[in-house]
């Protein structure tokens, strides 16, 4: 089979889902940046989920759960996005080929472990990766993976494997494509609504979400036993979730700053520009935390859980003040 959607352009992004959302919408005439897709879907967050273990460590996320960004695009763009999952693997492949022949650019949820073009050291069993397929040449799918700089290729069997990986958040062959996109401009009201929601998430009352989640994680870090070797792994795990898992740096805080700058123009609220600068400073604080943690992991500084916990508390305090100010700015 040979098809390729030559109108599609691949774009490099920090995060897979916001990258996929921005590319898909742009392809359908609503030119949006990754930062806009991220901010508009209120994807910024913080969550400390001690009961979900990830390689033995709690899940720590700096954003809302998978599919949140895609779903957040539906209303502002009056988009109808069709999601399909499959029981039968061959049927999933057949349907993908059919949609490609019809000229669709198709989004997929896959495992990161089974994608052959992923660097060996980055292949972990993570099932909520997103990518776009824009064609097929012989047995190779033409893939626009937002976290890769260039378009990639993936052989049919390998892609099927990645789409039908089992386990936590199993994709079940999930594919999605827009049936219609009826709005191409972002309105000031959409942005206000999205920001209001982010403020609510970050300053909410659930103790493991938002700034309260940061304090909770900080308390947990303060209690780590410096004599236990795994304590350093715990700290490394936090940094990995913040810097390694496609966040654009500082656990998505810089990406959100980029969104606020765009938002300032659309809403004609210059305060948002100043708040973007402030978010940048908060992102720098997260980077400093990561740097400090790594110095301790490398043994250049004495491992001091209390010090790291203090940094986390301070981040939480700064974000509390920040989101209060953000709420006032859009009121």
């Amino acid at each position: 089979m040979n098809v390729a959607n030559d109108k599609f352009t691949h774009r490099h992004a920090a995060h897979c889902e916001s990258g996929v959302a921005a590319s898909l919408l742009t392809h359908h005439g609503a030119a949006v940046s990754e930062a806009m897709a991220f901010g508009l879907s209120s994807a910024l967050s913080f969550a400390y989920l001690p009961f979900i273990k990830f390689a033995g460590f709690p899940l720590i996320a700096y954003r809302m759960p998978p599919k949140y960004i895609l779903k957040g695009m539906l209303k502002p763009f009056r988009m109808r996005l069709r999601f399909e999952t499959f029981r039968n693997e061959a049927e999933g492949t057949r349907r993908l080929d059919e949609l490609l022949k019809q000229g669709h650019v198709v989004g997929l949820q896959t495992s990161a472990f089974w994608l052959p073009y992923f660097p060996e050291d980055m292949r972990f069993h993570f099932n909520a990766h997103n990518l776009l397929v824009y064609g097929k040449e012989g047995k190779d799918y033409l893939i626009s993976d937002p976290v890769a700089e260039e378009p990639q290729r993936c052989e049919t069997g390998a892609l099927q494997r990645a789409r039908f990986a089992k386990g936590l958040m199993a994709p079940k062959g999930l594919l999605y494509y827009p049936e219609s996109v009826d709005r191409t401009e972002v309105t000031a009201e959409d942005i206000r609504r999205a920001i209001r929601k982010t403020v609510r998430i970050m300053l909410g009352f659930i103790p493991i979400i938002g700034v309260r989640g940061m304090h909770m994680l900080a308390n947990k870090v303060a209690k780590l036993d410096p004599a236990d070797k795994l304590s350093l792994n715990y700290v490394g795990h936090i940094v990995r979730m913040q810097e390694e898992i496609g966040t654009g740096g500082g656990g998505f805080r810089f990406l959100y700053a980029a969104f606020l700058q765009e938002a300032a123009e659309i809403t004609s609220l210059p305060e948002l520009r100043a708040l973007a600068d402030r978010m940048n400073v908060i992102g720098d604080g997260w980077r400093e935390f990561a740097l400090k943690a790594v110095r301790m992991i490398k043994g250049r500084e004495t491992f001091d859980p209390g010090l790291l916990a203090g940094m986390l508390h301070s981040q939480a305090d700064q974000e509390t003040e920040f989101f209060k100010a953000l709420k006032r700015a859009i009121a």
């Binding site: 654009g248 740096g249 700053a257 973007a276």
Partner: peptide, 17 residues
């Protein structure tokens, strides 16, 4: 990273991300 590059967001000289 096997020679790949990843996207980071940063502030340019004019203050834009």
């Amino acid at each position: 990273m096997g020679g790949h590059r990843r996207v980071m967001y940063a502030r340019g000289k004019d203050g834009r991300m």
